[in-house]
Design a protein around this nucleic acid. Sequence first.
DNA 1: GTCTATAACGAGATAGAC
DNA 2: GTCTATCTCGTTATAGAC
Lengths: 183, 183
Amino acid sequence: MDMKEKIFEIAQRLIQQRGVNGFSYADIAKEVGVSKPSLHHHFATKTDLIARLMERYTEQLTEYLESRTNLSAQEALNAYFNLYRQNIENERVCMGGMLSTEVLTLDPCIHPLLSRFFNYQQEWLTAILKKGQSDGELKLTKTAEQQACLIIAALQGALIISRAAGNSTFFNQSITGLYTELT
Amino acid sequence: MDMKEKIFEIAQRLIQQRGVNGFSYADIAKEVGVSKPSLHHHFATKTDLIARLMERYTEQLTEYLESRTNLSAQEALNAYFNLYRQNIENERVCMGGMLSTEVLTLDPCIHPLLSRFFNYQQEWLTAILKKGQSDGELKLTKTAEQQACLIIAALQGALIISRAAGNSTFFNQSITGLYTELT
DNA sequence: GTCTATAACGAGATAGAC
DNA sequence: GTCTATCTCGTTATAGAC
């Protein structure tokens, strides 16, 4: 694996666990096994690293969801829930959620990257929900747009609260109810 | 207003807007109009300030909710939603949600304070939902416990995402759907 | 209860050699 | 592409005078 990729993966974990304001270049350098100035060679500033990482994160999400658009609505929804669920056992939260809480401390060039991350999910979910409804596979008690926002908000919030509690109980309670209501 | 109260209010705003790792004693000192060492006289360490502040925050929430336990289930639910909604216009998120994202960087003495904050809300909401169901005032499509977790998670997540987007659209979409489904 | 002065440390970032 | 050395600044916290 090349150096840029190594830096990406360690920085991403640090952000998902501790936040942008909770880690430093020194932390990455220590784990990667190079000096701090070497990191600046690959990413001139911390803001640059965050921006490139958020772009990569969104791209990976897009690929994951696009490759599952042709599944049944129930399976697609399940795949989406699992995307969030896998973070708990690693003591991570979503990078988009983490950066959102820190948004007022971040360089403004990050803001549109955050909007893009959430807008994409909103559109993907809305389409899946509409498909599921017309297929008779999902039951909607509100508009697809409202349900999509609610699902995203619930997953983000449940992940953050569950991770802080140190177990997955809260996440499971929230999402099981949500899923059984829809199916 | 006495000095401790001044410090509390400014520190609370800074945390809700920027996070524990996004502000310093210098920021408070500047706004209060005293020197940094004077702050240490009132709160010996930053961790001490955070802990006292979180206790106060939970106490205020408890008083707010207890005083509304005798309202109708719909009105109580509305009061709870408004508690979260008022943060958006001030560019704040919930202090409990903010500290939860930063939990791995905080002194462990903060952890039980966070658990208490969320456990209390869970119990209060569950009771309200059960009452509303037996009164025929609320419709539940899942257990009261699951619905309570889902509501808390959705409010936290929607607040974080909406605040980052810079408008209340996402929050309103999420919560309007949730409320109309229940009533 | 507030101040000045300062300690001790870690942050992001740069210069310049190899 | 990596290093050592260094800069500048901000951080939490303490000592001790008023």
